[in-house]
Design a protein around this nucleic acid. Structure first.
Ligand SMILES: [Zn+2]
Ligand SMILES: [Zn+2]
Ligand SMILES: [Zn+2]
Ligand SMILES: [Zn+2]
Lengths: 171, 171
DNA sequence: TTCGTTTTTGCAATGTTATAACATCGCACC
DNA sequence: GGTGCGATGTTATAACATTGCAAAAACGAA
C-alpha cells in the first residue's frame, strides 16, 4: 500500500466537510478492491460530522434530506460496507454507528461507553488488549476482532455525575 | 435455605429443573429487597436450561407454552429484573440473554463470543480486566460495569472452523 | 380486619432496528 | 447486443423492544 496516506494525523473538522480526507479514504477503498460510491461517501461524511455517532434511522433521515428515495436498505448497506472497510464501527449495545476515530481502522481499539452521558470514545490502546489476548489464549480462546466495548465513566463525568443515567448523547 | 420443592409445585420443565438453586436465588433476591415471582423464576429456569442463551422472543414462546397469555412486556420485564439482580446478562451485539454462569453475579466477567459458532462463554477472569481498568484509569476513565463482550474463537472452533461464519448456536 | 400504598401483571398499541426478496440500472467486457 | 456483476431502488416484513393504562395481588399499618 502507498506511503502517502496520512490518516493518523487528520483531525476532525467540526463542520463536517472533509473532502480531502474522504478522497484519501476513497483511495484506501480502491486499494482494497472496493469503491466508495457517492452513497457510501455521503453516509461516511454524515457519520464523521456527528462524532457522537448516529442511529441507523437518524442517518436515514439525514440522507433523505438530500436523497428523498433513500430507504432502510440504503443505509444498512452503506453501513455494512463502511464497517467492512474499517471506516466505521457499530456499538452493539446501543445500536449506534460511529465513524472510526482512526479514519481507517488498522489498530485494535477499545470503545468506552460512558453510562452517564452515553458518549463513546474510541481509544487506541495496545497494552491492555494484548494482556487480554494472552489471558484468553491461556484458556484456549483466540482473540478475534479486537474491538471491545467497555462501560466506563468518562473524564467529564467523573465527580460531576452521580445519578444512574443522565440524558443522552448530544449530536 | 429452605428444603426443596417438588417438581409439580415449581412447574419447571423436567430437563432444566434446578429447584434448590432457584430457591437459593429467590433468597438472594429477598435479601436485596426484591422478589423472584413465578414469572421471573420461570424465565430464569428457562434461561438456565438453555446454556447457549435465548432471544427474547424465543423465551416468550417457551413461556407461552405454559402461560399462553405471556406477551413481550412479560418477558422483557422479567429479563430486566433478572439482569438488575445479576442473575442474567444481555449480550448486546446479539440481542441474546443468558443466565449468569456464576448463578448470581458478583465478580467481573468476560463474555467471549465465538464468531464461528456464536457460542457465548462467560469467563470469570480477574487479571486481564484489572490491567484494562488500570490502563483506563491512566486516561482518566473509570471502569464501570466490568462485563465486557469480546469476539474470540472458542477452543472447539480453533483449527476446525475456517469460513467466516458457521451456523448458529445450538440450544 | 380494612384501608391505602406499592409492586406486579395483563393487554393493546406502538415504536425501533434490521433484513428478505426481487426488480433494475450502469458499466466493463467480449 | 448480450452477458456478468456490483450497486441501487422498492416493497414488504421480520425481529427486537417499549409505552401507557388499568386490573390484580402483595404487603403493612391502622
Ligand atoms: Zn476504528
Ligand atoms: Zn460521561
Ligand atoms: Zn454473570
Ligand atoms: Zn466456536
Amino acid at each position: 500500500m502507498p506511503a502517502s496516506l496520512s490518516l493518523a494525523e487528520t483531525g476532525l473538522c467540526p463542520s463536517g466537510a472533509e473532502p480531502a480526507l474522504l478522497d484519501e479514504l476513497a483511495l484506501w477503498c480502491r486499494e482494497r478492491g472496493a469503491s466508495l460510491t457517492p452513497i457510501r461517501r455521503r453516509a461516511l461524511a454524515l457519520l464523521r460530522a456527528h462524532p457522537g455517532g448516529l442511529k441507523a434511522y437518524e442517518l436515514l433521515a439525514l440522507m433523505q434530506a438530500e436523497q428523498p428515495n433513500a430507504s432502510p436498505p440504503t443505509v444498512y448497506r452503506a453501513l455494512d460496507f463502511l464497517i467492512e472497510q474499517g471506516l466505521a464501527h457499530k456499538i452493539g449495545r446501543m445500536n449506534l454507528f460511529v465513524a472510526c476515530a482512526q479514519a481507517a481502522h488498522r489498530q485494535p481499539s477499545l470503545f468506552l461507553i460512558c453510562p452517564s452521558c452515553n458518549r463513546v470514545t474510541e481509544l487506541q490502546q495496545g497494552g491492555a488488549l494484548e494482556a487480554l489476548a494472552q489471558a484468553l489464549a491461556a484458556e484456549g480462546h483466540e482473540l478475534d476482532q479486537p474491538e471491545v466495548e467497555i462501560s466506563a465513566i468518562c473524564p467529564a463525568c467523573r465527580g460531576k455525575c452521580k445519578g444512574p443515567a443522565g440524558p443522552a448523547r448530544e449530536d
